[in-house]
Simulated scan of single mutants.
Amino acid sequence: MKKQLLILLFTFLPFWTFSQTKPYLSLADAERITEAAEAKAKAEGWNVVIAILDDGGHLISLKRMDGVQVGSVDVAQAKAKSAVFFKRSTKVFEDAMKGEGGSRIATLPHAVGVEGGLPIFKDGVIVGSIGVSGVTSAQDGIIAQAGIDAY
């Protein structure tokens, strides 16, 4: 009887554990965010790179608009990685770096002190991030926020 109970438990345990899922950022979500950010950039006449990462900091979507410098590809991804790893806007780090002792921010791994990276939350859980690069940091932030607003 004890052996049968254990077999039953181990048979159904995997189904029970997989039925509980946390929120996540789907490809469709990433595309919707990217499209909204791109629409804002086009409306303003700004060409940028838009990177969307999952909650582990892995790339889901990358869009490089025509004419953007190649360096913005890495910068957009770095901003997004900073936002997802620290669960906050990169503007927080930018502002902190302007204050007394702010240079310590530069020593934090993956902390980017330039506006344009925002975390993406769903039901209070971080599911990913957006990073934008290509124009001024304030303009990158405006574009990133337009993407978040569409989510």
Rank of each mutant, 00 (worst) to 15 (best):
K2S: 11
F10I: 13
T11R: 00
F15W: 04
W16E: 04
S19K: 11
P23K: 09
P23H: 08
P23Q: 12
Y24K: 12
S26N: 07
L27K: 05
D29C: 09
A30R: 06
A30K: 09
T34V: 07
E38K: 15
A39P: 03
K40R: 11
N47R: 10
V48Y: 05
V48G: 06
V49R: 03
A51P: 06
A51I: 05
I52S: 06
D54M: 01
D54S: 02
D55P: 02
D55A: 13
H58M: 06
I60W: 08
S61E: 12
L62T: 03
K63P: 00
K63V: 00
R64V: 10
D66Y: 01
D66R: 13
G71N: 05
D74C: 01
D74E: 15
V75F: 00
V75C: 01
A76E: 02
A76D: 03
A78Q: 13
K79L: 02
K81S: 04
K81D: 11
V84D: 07
F86D: 00
S89A: 12
S89F: 05
D95E: 14
M97Y: 12
G99Q: 15
E100W: 04
R104A: 13
A106H: 02
L108A: 10
L108V: 15
P109A: 13
H110F: 11
H110L: 14
V112T: 06
L118K: 10
P119F: 12
K122N: 08
V125E: 10
I126S: 10
G128S: 12
S129C: 08
G131A: 03
G131V: 04
S133L: 02
D140R: 08
G141K: 01
I143S: 05
I143D: 08
Q145F: 03
A150D: 11
A150W: 13
A150P: 02
A150H: 09
Y151Q: 03
